[in-house]
Design a protein around this nucleic acid. Structure first.
Length: 587
RNA sequence: GCACCCGUAGCUCAGCUGGAUAGAGCGCUGCCCUCCGAAGGCAGAGGUCGCGCGUUCGAAUCGCGCCGGGUGCACCA
């Protein structure tokens, strides 16, 4: 792919600095929101090295650019800023290149890798709530983005289906239905095919059990015992676990499908349990482990640490494998079966030190290089009080409730606007679904990943301003325009951006690749959100200022503007798809 | 106590490797549909960038110290 306007200008400015025997790095051009679309501040930085006044350097640089056909004006402002305006010819040329490109300017990454991305991470016992939204939506956006950038991506939901929570479920179920064959030690096979529990049962049993165990040591001891028996291979418990997992997966698939989120692998912690004994044997043999207070640990603290990082516990004093153990086994599994270059974990930042322990242990034991394991951390979803989000009842809001509320709000909006009267019920429902989802996903993704944010249902389901529906609205208006153009027999042609709003739109389109590359490098979806929003804004301005099909518009202008609109739609739809947002035909 | 993250307009948030009068959205005050979809566009009011030192020609951005909020600190996941 050829160069963006920004890159071309940077090359010109770099050359100009080089002519003055100054490093060409000073020619770096940046976008400006001031009087001109671009600026270069290199003259100020170069002043010390050149031992000249910044304005003098700027003047000499500008002199170099006088006959440059790509730059229509280069003005010095303030202490030595160089304001740059690209020529119409350059914009025309660039618009033509974008028009001819299937990916509307988006390149493939220079180095492509095989990347495993671990996100979602729901527990089998707990229904999805709003807290799962971030990992799911961010993870999904990243998998789409990384694929689009040319990487070989494998997504894995990494179910929480192992450990103490299973012990809780088993023992709590035993209290409720003690006659089930799973609890009879003498029965070792031919268990019922049908699960003794539904997803609602699981959702009830787990909090019930953990609540009891919290202030009842004996109850906790029973759960621990069941956990270790399960891990030791007790048949009845294993059969129960299998039911729990299958019931949960069926429910989760509904939730994730409603969210539009896909996973390549539906593996969980239980799946890697068989790898643990050999893995630990190897660790022991290589001298990485030691016994401490009855637990088998790996020390991961380093001298350079500012704080004391506790050791990673492989086997608890009670003989159970823990969270970190299965995470290590999962790395081993992935290395042996998938052999990825990098593994990404999209998990909230509360688990930073856990991952630090796991990554160090993986590195120390030779399982996986530390720098290729990345914790893509994100902040918590808080309520208006700044604390972790809770519903008025004190519980967490179910994800399915959030989705239906957004859909209802979208339906209401559709009715109010008096739009879509002529549509069938089916299309209306579908539009409401897409609009509601767009609202939710965009409001989540536009936040900087690493910070907490305040969850406000009203804002999550808002349709005006910087929202998902605003983006869809822009796309839908273009689609409508294209339909009208086709009916009128107007065809798209070469783009000649003469109007200011057209030029702004071309420049917005031209910054797509940069946004994608930055979003990828930082694993930050909000950067893509910013781009798509800026693009939609530039289009809305263009749409208001530049009539396309109206009477009195010259044919060539019609064709040019139509092509520009179509090009915008193409990039908008790619961008939205990368965010995991579907675009309706109308709304 | 120690470590990490955060503190920008009334509210919710952007601000890229330091650069000019700090930007959006919501809310508020005015405009703009005989004209391609007003879920839109335009204009306006609104900010000691938590506080203080320091580095620099230049700091919301970098360093240090406070204050305030969140999170985590060995056998839960």
């Amino acid at each position: 792919m050829s160069q963006s306007v920004l890159q071309i200008l940077t090359a010109h400015l770099g050359a100009a600095f080089a002519e003055l025997d100054l490093p060409k790095d000073y020619g770096r051009v940046s976008v400006s929101d001031k009087t001109s679309p671009f600026q270069c501040n290199g003259a100020l930085a170069a002043a010390k090295l050149a031992k000249k006044a910044p304005r003098d350097i700027a003047a000499q640089v500008v002199e170099q650019l006088e006959s440059n056909k790509d730059i229509i004006s280069a003005d010095i402002a303030g202490p030595g800023f160089i304001n740059l305006v690209p020529s119409e010819e350059l914009l025309t040329k660039r618009a033509g290149e974008l028009l001819a490109d299937e990916r509307v300017g988006a390149c493939v990454a220079e180095i492509t890798e095989k990347i495993v991305i671990d996100f979602g991470g729901p527990n089998v016992a707990k229904p999805m709530h709003v807290g799962h939204l971030r990992s799911s939506v961010i993870g999904d956006c990243l998998q789409r983005l990384l694929r689009f950038r040319g990487h070989d991506v494998i997504s894995d939901i990494h179910l929480g289906d192992w450990g103490l929570q299973m012990g809780h479920l088993i023992t709590e179920l035993e209290d409720e239905q003690p006659d089930l064959p799973y609890f009879d030690g003498d029965v070792t096979d031919s268990y019922p095919e049908k699960s003794p529990v539904s997803i609602d049962d699981l959702a009830r049993l787990y909090p019930q059990a953990s609540g009891k165990a919290k202030d009842d040591p004996d109850r906790m001891a029973r759960s621990r015992k069941a956990t270790s028996e399960l891990q030791a291979g007790r048949e009845g418990y294993k059969a129960l676990l299998e039911h729990f997992i299958q019931v949960s997966i069926a429910a989760l698939k509904k939730d994730f499908s409603a969210l539009g989120v896909h996973f390549d692998l539906w593996k969980g912690e239980a799946a890697v349990d068989p790898l643990i004994p050999d893995m630990i044997e190897q660790f022991k043999k290589d001298g990485h482990t030691e016994l401490s207070d009855g637990a088998l640990i790996i020390r991961v603290a380093e001298d350079s640490d500012k704080k004391d990082l506790p050791p990673l516990i492989l086997i608890s004093g009670a003989g159970a494998a823990l969270y970190a153990t299965t995470d290590l086994a999962t790395i081993k599994d992935r290395r042996e079966n998938l052999n990825p270059d990098t593994i990404l974990y999209v998990v909230d930042f509360g688990q930073s030190s856990h991952f630090e322990q796991v990554y160090r242990a993986a590195d120390k034991t030779g399982l996986f290089p530390r720098e290729k394991l990345e914790h893509i951390k994100f902040g918590t979803v808080n309520g208006k009080d700044g604390k972790r989000f809770r519903t008025r009842a004190g519980g967490v809001m179910r994800l399915s409730d959030l989705l239906s509320q957004a859909r209802d709000a979208a339906t209401k909006r559709l009715d109010e606007a008096g739009l879509a009267q002529d549509m069938g019920a089916e299309e209306r429902t579908e539009i409401a679904r897409k609009v509601g989802l767009a609202a939710i996903k965009f409001s989540d993704l536009q936040n900087v990943r690493t910070t907490n944010y305040i969850f406000d249902l009203e804002r999550f389901t808002a349709f005006e301003g910087k929202t998902g529906p605003y983006l869809l609205y822009a796309a839908v208006r273009i689609k409508s325009l294209l339909r009208k153009a086709q009916a009128a027999g107007v065809n798209p042609g070469a783009i000649t951006p003469t109007h200011k709003a057209e030029q702004r739109l071309v420049l917005a389109l031209d910054s797509f690749n940069r946004a994608l590359a930055t979003a990828e490098a930082k694993r930050m979806p909000h950067i893509l959100c910013e781009h798509v929003y800026t693009l939609a804004q530039a289009f809305s301005k263009f749409y208001a200022d530049c009539p396309v099909l109206q009477d009195g518009v010259p044919d060539e202008t019609k064709s040019s503007r139509l092509a520009l609109a179509a090009l915008t739609l193409k990039q908008l739809e790619i961008g939205l798809e990368l965010l995991g947002i579907e675009t309706p035909e109308r709304m």
